[in-house]
């Protein structure tokens, strides 16, 4: 019995030659928050796939109109309503314009409105919500009451009015979207601001004598920006869709300029005879919106600090 114990002891507990060298080795390299976020995004298949879709659509919308042999607004009355073929990849419309060219010019407009319509209201919201939450008092009261009134008015009312005043270009649509969407982000940012302004690291910055400007922009905003980036990504599909909807009901982009929504609207009249005129731009809207939604979801997961190890 004693011998067995002894043999176990001898075999299993070998003194390391130089214990000091093994003690306290830091294995993990120092990784910043953003490096971590990109690493997680890179390993996420859905994020990669939707990112690739977004990248390809954006790249083609820039490149195709430059190199296409047809102009998006060149009519050709000898070749109207052609089904997709070798000459016209997506066919032609009722006045013989090449739909392949029009879809990619429309992509430029739709994506521009999508990104602009997501970022502009977010910036307005961050600024006003931040001021409202950080300073409080009468300015908070004022901004919050304006929002309370603003959200009560249906957004279509503003949008119609703005379109009447400013015409129906992409800028007008972005402003219209900004007018309706800044209020939600302002509320969210205000809430986050209230949550952060009494955190100890903010108090400590105040104790060090930091100005309000420094506290807002160096301390609090970086902490809430991650969430706002996510909401920008998930606002892009909303803006793309809103543009499509406005153009579809005839308030948005007007022919011969085009966007995906405008193409759908033009195609919708004859969709039984020429279904490709409606379904091709419709498919682009769906795929793009889905890609941005999925990417936004993955980004939210990647940014979530609780998933950090």
């Amino acid at each position: 019995m004693r011998n067995i114990e002894r043999s176990i002891m001898d075999r299993d507990f070998v003194r390391l030659p130089e214990a000091g060298r093994f003690a306290h080795v830091i294995v993990r390299p120092s990784v910043s928050y953003w490096e971590d976020v990109f690493r997680r995004l890179g390993t996420d298949k859905v994020a990669l796939a939707s990112g690739v879709v977004i990248a390809v659509i954006s790249a083609l919308s820039v490149l195709v109109p430059l190199f296409c042999k047809y102009d998006y607004d060149a009519t050709d009355l000898l070749h109207i309503n052609q089904f997709p073929n070798a000459q016209h990849w997506f066919g032609t419309d009722a006045v013989g314009r090449d739909l392949w060219a029009r879809v990619w010019v429309g992509a430029r407009v739709s994506l521009f409105i999508g990104v602009g319509g997501a970022i502009v209201p977010q910036l307005v919201g961050i600024f006003l919500g931040g001021v409202s939450g950080y300073f409080g008092g009468w300015i908070d009261m004022l901004i919050m009451r304006v929002i309370d009134v603003g959200v009560c008015i249906p957004s279509l009312v503003y949008v119609t009015l703005i379109m009447l005043f400013m015409g129906s270009g992409p800028t007008a649509i972005i402003i219209a979207i900004a007018m309706t969407c800044w209020m939600d982000s302002a509320r969210v940012v205000r809430g986050r601001m209230l949550q952060f302004k009494n955190r100890e690291f903010v108090i400590s910055a105040r104790t060090l004598g930091a100005s309000s400007f420094r506290i807002i922009f160096r301390h609090i905003l970086p902490n809430i920006l991650g969430q706002q980036v996510v909401s920008i990504t998930s606002a892009i599909p909303t803006a793309v869709f809103l543009e499509a909807y406005l153009s579809f009901i005839g308030l948005g982009i007007q022919s011969p300029m085009t966007s995906w929504g405008q193409l759908c609207q033009a195609g919708s009249g004859y969709y039984r005879l020429y279904p490709y005129q409606l379904f091709i731009p419709g498919a682009f809207i769906s795929v793009t919106i889905m890609a941005f939604y999925l990417f936004g979801n993955c980004l939210r997961d990647a940014l979530d600090p609780h998933l950090r190890d």
Binding site: Y33, F201, S204, P222
Partner: peptide
């Protein structure tokens, strides 16, 4: 005033309770 507060910072400082909340993680 706020400017005098900045001068005060050179005289008075604070150590906080929660070492996790008191350092800005960025």
């Amino acid at each position: 005033s706020q400017r005098q507060c900045r001068e005060l910072a050179k005289k008075v400082q604070m150590i906080f309770q929660d070492p996790y909340a008191s350092l800005n993680s960025f």
